[in-house]
């Protein structure tokens, strides 16, 4: 399990989907949650960086867990997800600042996500508001963007959640690049995507 967290954490960082200390990941194991430590470097995880605590009930290790544990727990409580990946992909985050939803125009993006909802909160880190709304979105979608903050992606496996993060960022990068081209307005691109 540590190896899986280490590999995905490293890949997230090397792909530029997180900066040095951003992002967090968790998996659900029955009534327990294993989540990355608060402030951990996902690209350099060690055994001390995986914190196991209750899925619904706190124990003393809550003092070490990621600040986003509130959101992770809420997602597990209201969805069937078994793994969560939270990252700060730059293109997706940039687009989230100007759009209420992001519609991929590339084939893979359309295939995987169709539409990426964007939610704006007053406090986007570890807040009750985010913990209330993001799980609701993830009942209908596998990914959700927090405006100006980053992405939450869920799956049965950590790798699946990671794939969604990677795919969304790829789609947003294509969207961004396409908009630089002649005729690449938001409206024309949406029409080409069939939305």
């Amino acid at each position: 399990m540590l190896k899986e967290f280490q590999q995905i954490g490293r890949d997230l960082f090397l792909a530029g989907l997180n900066n040095s200390h951003s992002g967090n990941m968790s998996i659900r194991m029955g009534d327990r949650i294993i989540i990355t430590r608060r402030g951990a470097q996902l690209g350099r995880l060690t055994a001390r960086d995986l914190i196991e605590t209750g899925l619904t009930k706190n124990d003393s290790r809550i003092a070490l867990a990621s600040t986003e544990i509130k959101v992770h727990r809420a997602i597990y409580a209201r969805t069937a997800a078994l793994a969560i990946c939270h990252a700060h992909p730059p293109y997706a985050t940039a687009l989230s600042l100007t759009q209420t939803e992001i519609i991929p125009v590339d084939s893979e993006g359309s295939y995987f996500t169709h539409k990426i909802p964007v939610f704006g909160a007053e406090l986007t880190i570890g807040s009750q508001e985010v913990a209330a709304v993001i799980p609701e979105i993830l009942q209908a979608y596998k990914v959700a963007m927090l405006k100006g903050h980053g992405i939450f992606a869920v799956g049965q496996l950590l790798e699946e959640a990671y794939q969604l993060v990677s795919s969304v960022e790829h789609s947003c990068k294509i969207l961004w690049l396409a908009r630089q081209l002649p005729g690449g307005t938001a409206g024309s691109l949406a029409a080409k995507a069939g939305w």
């Binding site: 600040t67 509130k70 570890g126 807040s127």
Partner: peptide
């Protein structure tokens, strides 16, 4: 309120 130590660990 967002920090797990000050919003959960110590209060609980």
């Amino acid at each position: 309120k967002a920090n797990p130590v000050t919003s959960q660990g110590l209060p609980e």
